[in-house]
Write a protein that binds this DNA or RNA. Structure first.
Lengths: 181, 181
DNA sequence: TTCCGGAATTAACCCAAGTTAAAAGTCATG
DNA sequence: CATGACTTTTAACTTGGGTTAATTCCGGAA
């Protein structure tokens, strides 16, 4: 049995409006969510109320809190819909168990986790080695459509800076690009 | 066949002195390295010569460049021994292929990748949400022995700051802790 | 068209960390 | 114990981003 078939059989549909949460930081949510349509953001909330965006999740991608679904601890982040969402929910344990007996599913999960790991490494690289300005430029190069999907506030919180800081960076980029003309 | 047995059968030993490289940024090194003994650092080198340390790898852990071994691209980082090392080398593809036909190995790899993913998520969280000072305090809490293993220069480059910056942070921590006595 | 509310920009000020360079500390080795 | 190389600290100055608050911009509703 292939992964898609397994999900179709064992998953249940979930519909959420923009602004609604799927789970919150601290929840013991052991589900894996596949995004059939819509857009979500995963974010950390610090004790003093500051938001930091871990990632945006769009159509075709999936998300789970590994701390909750694999390690059995409370989720370290919240998941909220930015646009109306159609999701497929699957207990993470069901997939993990299926991978132990089903070679196709195991292979799919290994490939999924390898790709996931590469994405996380890329993010780690950006946060460790690049300045906020460099991160912003890279984001614009790699996913220019992002600016039409989310607010500048959210882009800033994804880059690890404040909206004010991002505004300054944009201005800096424009003026340094213009003065060479 | 279990993972340990597979590695024993298919792996080859590799010994390196402190200071020697295992592979360098840009190499197409498709191997996976298990650390039987020793200590290594994985680091990024920016075009202007700045070093940023991705991770330290100690006895019992393993490391590979996924970009090289899974995606077939040049490695984004270098791997160098900080202490004399005894490693076991395995072609990553051998393990990946074995996981397709061998359920035990597939299960081991899934678990390995899940743990790897959780570690990467924790690092992402620290770099995105914590200040350098908070990251340093967290490092001291979680792995206090690190200060005896690597230089302060390297701790700083792991935290994403300069050695000068770390020296100031240490001073700040001591003086604020002392003034309450 | 006007009005409202959120988003983005701008300004003023603050501060943590970067940079460069000098000084002090540490340690191995002859 | 003296030397030299490396690590760490300190100092002086710069800078990028945070904070707060005011202002401008913009889109939707009346």
């Amino acid at each position: 049995m292939k992964l898609g078939e397994f999900i179709a059989r064992n998953g249940t549909p979930l519909v959420r409006e923009a602004g609604e949460h799927v789970f919150r930081q601290g929840d013991q949510n052991q589900s894996l969510y596949f995004v059939k349509d819509g857009l979500l953001k995963a974010y950390y909330l610090s004790t003093d109320g500051k938001e930091n965006i871990k990632s945006f999740i769009s159509k075709g991608y999936s998300i789970t809190s590994l701390m909750a679904s694999h390690a059995g601890k409370p989720s370290t982040f919240s998941l909220v819909c930015l646009k109306p969402c159609e999701l497929t929910v699957l207990p993470f344990s069901a997939l993990h168990e299926a991978s132990r007996t089903n070679a196709d599913i195991a292979a799919s999960i290994v490939d999924f986790l390898l790709n996931f790991a590469m994405k996380k490494e890329a993010r780690e690289y950006e946060l460790l080695c690049l300045s906020p300005e460099e991160r912003y430029k890279k984001l614009l190069e790699e996913t220019p459509q992002i600016v039409n999907l989310v607010t500048q506030n959210e882009i800033a919180r994804y880059l690890g800076i404040t909206p004010v800081g991002l505004s300054r960076i944009k201005k800096r980029i424009i003026t340094t690009a213009t003065q060479n003309s």
